[in-house]
Design a protein around this nucleic acid. Structure first.
Lengths: 234, 234
DNA sequence: GATTGTGAAAGCGTTCACAGCC
DNA sequence: GGCTGTGAACGCTTTCACAATC
């Protein structure tokens, strides 16, 4: 059941694209598509075929030359590589606006990341129920993490509390963090960290907007290369 | 008042770090710090000094050798380069869970991105007020965009509606998009696009968790290099 | 003496192009 | 003939290391 053996490390840039392939493959599977070429997959993902093939080659040689990839089998391989054959309960620290939205969002549980706990420090929040989960005090974090075997923590606190939240999560035994607070947090070596900062994203867009305004020329940026767009007017 | 002239293009990777520097510089300024070295700035940002200097050098030569950078002046320069000397009102398409959270979040307006409009298609949503803004129907999008001179659109719809939302935004005249929907959307050349996908972030963490579980070794990932950490108990 | 600014080197990620296989 | 898998070339990003400057 442990598959082939722990394979070679996959470059981080490729890892970041695997979830996109997985979503597309799942959609195609639901529509009854059995086989897909790197060209088609690239089209859906807004990438080029060479990149798709290179990415998939890190999983192993699961395609068939002259034919393409079997969708169902590839889904299984990507899921396995991403560790999605099991659920990963998460604990959310911070039950404010953002924490509540995340808990109520639903997209977490659906995709194998059920909210296993919510944590806050405010008396007004502790004890309330958000998205079906009772909010508990930071003091109980370690107990929550250990009893539910949680390894992923989501930081949805204000920036000022983020480092404290991270420290508490790591102390409780969490080994991966997803940080929504607008602060750089530092973690011990060996702990994985991803960061989502809305203000940063908007400020990056602002840069290109401003540039567009001052120099009358376009720029590529993160834009999908638009290889065959779906009727985007303009 | 238009500064030096539209300067050379800054590499995308550097642009993405400027907002981080800006936040740190602003915090330091608030604490009364007048001067900062690349080493110190790097420390706060979880980067190394050479990268900081290279990034800042794209703005111009605003440091003083042997001394460092004057904080207030550098803030001004970064803000100018990022186009943050003006407000950029945004329109949010999708007034569901996520859209409401974004509108109510407050972090937008504070940082120069006021919510200039909210759009939905559901009769039940249109007319309601979210975060102080009245939700209007998709049919009114172009009017909202034009009357408030909006150039940034935020897509907070379900995945199935995201491409339609993007097309409508572009047709209405928006030139930058921030997409929260879990779908690849394609846009015409010249339109800027950034994407935030919670499920993708979690799945990336899952990969490293799974890897940690199967091979007993750590990996760097996006983790802060932890050059002098602040008491994170390992 | 300290710290910036920057060419040059090294490291990664993407793209090319084609051999290998169906 | 069609499509994958991949070494090699290319380009972007990071890091090094040091001359220039205060």
């Amino acid at each position: 059941m442990a598959g082939k053996r722990s394979r070679r490390r996959i470059p981080e840039a490729s890892v970041a694209r695997l979830p996109v392939y997985l979503r597309i493959l799942s959609e195609q599977f639901d529509e009854g598509v059995n086989s897909i070429s790197s060209e088609e997959l690239a089209e859906f993902a807004g990438l080029n075929a060479a990149k798709v093939r290179k990415d998939l080659s890190y999983l192993g040689s699961y395609g068939t030359r002259g034919v393409g990839y079997e969708v169902e089998f590839l889904i299984y391989q990507v899921r396995r590589e991403l560790g999605l054959t099991q659920d990963w309960p998460v604990v959310i620290v911070g039950a404010g606006n953002l924490g509540q939205a995340l808990a109520g969002y639903g997209g977490f549980g659906d995709r194998g990341f059920p909210v296993g706990g919510m944590i806050d420090v405010a008396e007004s929040k502790v004890g309330s129920v958000v998205g079906g989960v009772r909010v508990r005090h930071l003091d109980e974090l370690a107990q929550v993490v250990q009893s539910r075997n949680i390894s992923i923590g989501v930081i949805a606190t204000p920036g000022t509390a983020a480092q404290e939240a991270a420290d508490a999560l790591v102390a409780a035994g969490v080994t991966s963090l997803l940080n929504f607070a607008p602060t750089v947090i530092s973690v011990p070596h060996g702990i994985s960290m991803r960061k989502v900062d809305l203000a940063v994203e908007l400020q990056i867009l602002s840069y290109y907007e401003q540039r567009r305004a001052s120099t009358e020329q376009s720029n590529g940026l993160q834009a999908v290369p638009a290889e065959r767009r779906r009727g985007a007017s303009a």
